[in-house]
Amino acid sequence: MQIFVKTATGKTITLEVEPSDTIENVKAKIQDKEGIPPDQQRLAFAGKQLEDGRTLSDYNIQKESTLHLALR
């Protein structure tokens, strides 16, 4: 499925993911596309910060959802 990640600079990244993917996997995909190390990424959805060990389906993130990326 496709999801979107909006960066602090307003850029939107499109990612191909599975509901079973962990947040860690998603951060690795962002690193592949943007070169941002996962340990510098903070992802949020619906106002909640997402934890590495959880999956997209844990957070009820569905196709075409938009996550927000902040850098630490």
Rank of each mutant, 00 (worst) to 15 (best):
R54W: 10
K29Q: 12
M1K: 02
G47M: 04
R72H: 08
G35D: 07
A46R: 13
I3A: 01
P37F: 07
E64S: 12
E16Q: 08
A46Q: 11
Q49G: 08
G47A: 05
A70S: 09
T12D: 05
T55Y: 07
E64C: 05
T22D: 05
K11N: 15
S57I: 10
V17A: 06
E51R: 06
E16G: 08
G47W: 05
K63S: 15
L50N: 00
H68P: 01
I3F: 01
V17T: 05
V26G: 00
L67D: 01
S20I: 09
G10D: 07
L43G: 00
E24W: 15
E16A: 09
P37H: 14
A8Y: 08
A46L: 09
T55E: 04
K11M: 12
L69H: 02
K6Y: 09
T12S: 08
I23Q: 02
A70G: 10
K27T: 02
Q49T: 15
D21A: 11
G10L: 09
E18Q: 13
E64T: 07
D21Q: 06
A28Y: 13
T22S: 11
I36V: 07
A46T: 06
K63Y: 07
Q40Y: 10
A8K: 10
I36A: 04
K27R: 05
T14C: 04
Q62I: 11
I23P: 03
K6A: 09
D58N: 07
A46N: 15
Q40M: 08
D32A: 15
P19T: 11
K11I: 15
L56N: 01
E24N: 11
F45C: 03
I3W: 00
L50E: 00
A70E: 09
S57K: 12
G35E: 05
K48Q: 06
H68M: 08
Q31S: 12
D32H: 13
V5W: 01
T7S: 09
S57A: 11
L56M: 05
E24S: 09
I61Q: 01
T22L: 12
H68I: 10
L15C: 03
T12W: 06
K29N: 07
I13W: 07
E24L: 15
E24Q: 13
S20E: 11
K48S: 10
D32N: 08
T9A: 15
V17S: 03
I23M: 04
G10V: 05
A46E: 15
A70H: 15
T12C: 04
E24F: 13
R42H: 08
K6L: 13
V26L: 10
D52C: 04
A28C: 04
R54C: 05
K48M: 14
G53L: 10
V17H: 03
Q41S: 03
A46Y: 10
F4M: 06
T9K: 15
K27V: 02
R42V: 15
A44F: 15
D21W: 08
Q41V: 06
I61M: 03
Q40H: 13
L50D: 00
T9R: 10
V5N: 00
G10P: 06
G47K: 05
D39T: 09
P37E: 13
D52F: 04
T55P: 06
E51V: 13
E16N: 13
Q40N: 12
I30L: 08
K27M: 04
K29I: 09
T22Y: 12
V5D: 00
E34P: 01
N60R: 07
G10R: 05
G53F: 12
